[in-house]
Computed example of a mutant assay.
Amino acid sequence: MQPRKLHGLITTATPDSSEYDRKPENCLVVVEREVPDLSGAQLLVKVRATAINRADIMQRHGRYPPPPGETDILGLECAGEIVEVGPGCKRDWKRGDRVMALVGGGGYADLCVVEEACTIHIPENWTFEQAAAVPEAWLTASQLLMFVAQTKPGDWVLIHAGASGVGLAAVQIATKVVGAKAICTAGSQEKLNACIARGASEALNYKDADGAFSERVLQITEGHGVDVILDCIGGSMYEQNAKCLAIDARWVIYGTLGGTKVPSFDLRVLMSKRASMLASTLRNRDLSYKASLIKNLEQYIMPRFVSKECEPVIAKVFYSLESVPEAHRFVESNANIGKVVVSLTDETSSL
C-alpha cells in the first residue's frame, strides 16, 4: 500500500533572509509529505478551511519557528472532517464528523493531524469558514481574559487592536460572557464601529491626539482607570497604557506590534497602582493547558455561539492554498476587521 500524502505550505525564509525573500509570494512553497501515523488520542482531519494569524506571518519571516516536535507546515487552526480516529481517543468520534481544532502547526494543508483534546465539534448550520475563524482567536482571547487577567464582572477592560480577530473575540467575551465593560482602540471609523457593534462601551481612534488616548479612557471610566489591558502593541503604547491603570490592574502583553523596547520604564508606575504586568503566549503551552482552554470554550462560549449572542467575525475569505500569499498581504495591510480565512473546500488530496 502506497503511503498517503498531504500537501501543505512551508516557508523558505530564515531570520537572515532579505525583505524580498520574506515576501509571501517568494517564500511560501507547497510541499508534499507522508501523512504521519496517528499515535494516542489524535485525529486525522481533512481540512476544509484554515485562517491567517500574525504568528503565521512571523513564522513566514523565519522569526517564529514551530515548537519542538511540531510540523514546519504553517497554520495554527483548521476546520474540516474527520477521516481517521486514533487508537487512544476517548470521545465518540466517527469518520465524517465536522470539527474545528487548535494546532501547533499544519493548518495550511489538505490533511492535518490534531489532538483530540484540542478539537471541538462544529455547531450545526455553521460553515467550515466560520469554524476556522474560532480556535486561535477565541482561545487566545478567553485565555487572556479568563485565565491570565482573571477578569471579573464590572471590570473595565482596554482592548488594543479591537477590530482584529482576537480583539473582536475579546470584546464579546468581556462583555457577553464575563460581564465586564470594554473600551477598544483601533485605527479607522469602520473598525471603531465594529467594536461598538460587538459590545464595546467606547472605541477610540489611537491616531487621534497623537495617540494620547489615556485622558479619554479616564473620562470614560470616571477617573477609575482600566482594570485589565489586553496589549498586543507593546512599546509604542507603554506610556499611555500606564496612565490608564486602575488600582490592582492587570496589564497583559501578548504581542509587540508597536515595538519591543520602552525608552523609559519607571517601576513606580506599577507600584503606585499595585498593578501586575503579565505576558502570555498560546502556541507553546502544554496539551493539558490547551485542553483546559477548550473545555472553558465549550462550557462558556460555544452555547453563546449557538444562541447567536456571540459570533466569529470574518473579514474576508480566500480560496485555495495558492491564495495564502495574497491572504498574508491582506493581513499585513491591516485592512481586516475580524479574521481572514482560507477555504479549501475545493481542494483535493491523495486520500
Rank of each mutant, 00 (worst) to 15 (best):
A109H: 10
G75V: 13
V85T: 09
D97H: 06
P67W: 08
I73Q: 11
G107R: 03
L74E: 06
A117N: 09
I82S: 11
V103H: 00
E81G: 05
W93I: 04
G75E: 09
H61D: 10
I57P: 00
C112I: 02
I57W: 02
G106T: 03
L102P: 04
V103Q: 01
I57S: 00
R60M: 05
R98G: 08
V114P: 01
I122P: 09
G80W: 01
E115M: 11
E116Q: 11
H121W: 14
C78V: 04
R95I: 10
H61G: 06
G104Y: 04
Q59G: 03
C89Q: 00
R91V: 10
P66K: 13
K94E: 14
G86E: 12
P67C: 11
R60E: 08
G106Y: 01
G80V: 06
V83D: 14
G104V: 05
K90W: 14
E84F: 04
L111R: 12
T119S: 11
L102V: 04
G104K: 12
I122F: 04
R60H: 04
N125F: 15
I82K: 11
D110H: 07
A55T: 13
V83Q: 14
L76N: 02
G107K: 03
G106F: 01
N125M: 15
V85M: 11
T119E: 08
A101G: 12
Q59F: 01
P123Y: 04
R95N: 13
E81H: 07
D97W: 07
R95D: 10
V85Y: 07
E84V: 08
G86K: 08
Y108N: 12
R60S: 06
P65L: 08
Y64A: 09
I73L: 10
R63W: 09
Q59C: 03
I120T: 15
V83H: 13
G62F: 08
A117Q: 10
Y64T: 04
A109Q: 14
R60I: 00
G69N: 10
G80C: 02
C89T: 00
P87N: 14
Q59E: 06
E116F: 02
V85F: 01
D72F: 03
D56P: 01
R60D: 03
E84G: 05
D72S: 03
Y108T: 00
R63G: 11
P123F: 06
H61E: 12
D97Y: 08
P68L: 14
P65D: 14
G80Y: 02
